[in-house]
């Protein structure tokens, strides 16, 4: 019966043995073509792309680390700047206090000097005024006394007497 052994090519069907050889030939040809024009370049392409991806990932990681570093230094700089600013303000305040204090002191001293000078001047003027007052009052007294004594005394004599009186007073 042809039906039971159809698998192994009975009768005028082609033989399996020749098929083995044809398989070798066709497989070899296909393998050569694919290896030369397809899988060779494809495998290389895959390798190089995998390498590129790996490198890109590494670079991304590095970039991330750098960014972190930069952010860190940035924060440090900002903190330092804030600290410096605080210090500068503090110093400025101190300096201003110093200046105001010294200005006040100087003003005080000058005022004191002015007051002292003024007092002295007042005293001087007082002295002069008193002297003048005394002289005038002496003259006045002499004139009054002369009028009272009705011109018995000459002027020269009167002058001497008056001076003597003033000095005694």
């Amino acid at each position: 019966m042809a039906s039971t052994n159809f698998v192994f090519a009975a009768g005028d069907s082609p033989s399996g043995g020749k098929m083995v050889i044809w398989t070798w030939i066709i497989f070899a040809a296909l393998f050569f073509v694919l290896w030369k024009f397809a899988f060779g370049p494809i495998m290389q392409g895959l390798e190089s792309r995998e390498q590129t991806i790996r490198q890109s990932l590494d670079q991304a990681e590095q970039a991330r680390e750098q960014l972190e570093q930069i952010e860190k230094t940035q924060e440090e700089l900002i903190a330092k700047a804030q600290h410096d600013a605080k210090e500068i303000i503090e110093e400025a305040r101190k300096a201003a206090d110093e200046v105001s204090r010294s200005v006040k002191q100087k003003a005080n001293e000058e005022a004191q000097v002015l007051i002292y000078n003024a007092e002295r001047e007042i005293q001087e003027k007082q002295g002069i005024a008193r002297l003048q007052l005394r002289q005038e009052s002496a003259d006045l007294a002499v004139a009054v006394a002369g009028k009272i004594l009705s011109e018995k005394l000459d002027d020269e004599h009167t002058q001497k007497l008056t001076e003597k009186l003033i000095n005694e007073i």
Partner: peptide, 21 residues
């Protein structure tokens, strides 16, 4: 003795070569 199955192998090879090349 090139047969129908051998022809199928050739056609399959051509399809694969076309796809990959």
């Amino acid at each position: 003795g090139f047969s129908l199955h051998a022809l199928m192998l050739v056609i399959a090879s051509l399809i694969i070569s076309f796809l990959f090349v």
